[in-house]
Simulated scan of single mutants.
Amino acid sequence: MNDLKYPLHFQFRVTSFANDFVATDANGQSIYYVREKIFSWRDHIMVYRDSSKSEMLYELISNKLIDFQQTFTIKDSQGKVIGKARRKTIKSLWRSTFNLMDANDQHDHTIKEKNPWTKFWDGLFGELPIIGMLSGYVFNPSYILRNDLEEPMFEIRKEPSFFGRKFSVLKLTDKEVDDERFVLSLMLMVLMERSNG
């Protein structure tokens, strides 16, 4: 994931039964195809070079069968562990939180929902007959990835959309950072949180 041109854009496919999306860079060039494996005992996400699925670049595999304090191990195509992401399920009842660990299992970054009220109002508005379908245009959550000094590194925003699900990833720092691990963690977070907004 070297030399990524930000902002990145994630767009879910509406013609597929699978939970999948295409990632493009700032120039509109397709850079990844991300797909959650269906009919699997554990959550299993694959990142391919493109939608042909001829070359798998990364895998993100859950350690548990149920969604409770899940930890996803992120591996490259050679099976090398890049890092881990742990979803804090209990806290996510109010604010979605993912703790990121490096390859040595050291917690060093966190992804948190920017405004938890967005999720609350989206859930309430989405229950209304007919007009609830418009919640994707009105309530659009965003998430901030911060380091252990609470400095913002990345922001991912849900873009207004009806059928499609569109997200934009902005890099907020000029520092040298682990783009590979962080973008993969944001991809995971989007798949897990897709229903919000």
Rank of each mutant, 00 (worst) to 15 (best):
D174I: 03
S142V: 01
K80M: 03
R146D: 01
K37Q: 09
F163T: 06
Q29I: 03
V177M: 04
F98Y: 06
T110W: 00
A18S: 14
T89V: 02
R194L: 14
T89M: 01
L124R: 05
S92H: 03
P160V: 01
K88P: 10
L191T: 14
A103W: 04
D102K: 03
F17W: 13
S30F: 09
D102G: 07
T24F: 14
S54W: 07
I156Q: 05
S142F: 01
F139L: 08
D25E: 02
K80T: 09
L188T: 12
N27L: 12
D102W: 01
T71E: 01
L134H: 11
V177P: 10
G197L: 06
K53N: 05
T173A: 12
A18I: 02
K175Q: 15
L8M: 05
M56A: 03
P141I: 00
M187E: 01
R194A: 15
N104R: 07
V14R: 10
Y6F: 15
L134F: 15
S51E: 03
N104Y: 04
N99S: 09
S135D: 15
F139Q: 09
Y32N: 08
V190L: 08
L100M: 05
L145M: 08
K75S: 06
R49N: 04
P7A: 04
G83N: 04
F68S: 04
S185A: 15
P160M: 00
V183M: 12
F17I: 10
D122L: 03
E180Y: 12
W121T: 05
F139R: 09
D20Q: 13
K5M: 14
H107R: 08
M133E: 11
I131H: 13
K119M: 07
R157V: 07
N140A: 09
N99Y: 04
N104T: 06
D122C: 07
D76T: 00
N196R: 14
H44E: 01
K91S: 11
K91H: 10
L172W: 03
M189V: 13
F17E: 01
D179C: 13
S135R: 08
F10G: 10
R157Q: 13
P141G: 04
D102P: 06
D20H: 06
F17K: 11
D178G: 14
S40G: 06
M133A: 15
E150K: 05
T15H: 13
F72N: 05
F120G: 09
S54P: 11
A26P: 06
M56D: 03
P116H: 02
W121M: 12
W121Q: 06
N147E: 00
H107Y: 00
S185G: 10
G83H: 10
N63Y: 06
K75Y: 12
N104E: 08
G79S: 09
D50A: 07
F139S: 12
V81R: 04
P116L: 01
N104W: 01
V138Q: 13
P152S: 07
Q106E: 08
V22K: 15
F163R: 05
T118D: 12
D122P: 12
W121P: 15
S30T: 02
T173W: 08
S92F: 00
I144A: 07
S168F: 10
K166L: 12
L186T: 10
F182M: 09
L65V: 14
E113P: 13
D179F: 07
M153T: 00
L170A: 10
I74S: 03
I61S: 13
S195C: 08
T73Q: 04
Q106Y: 04
Y58E: 00
I61W: 08
S92N: 02
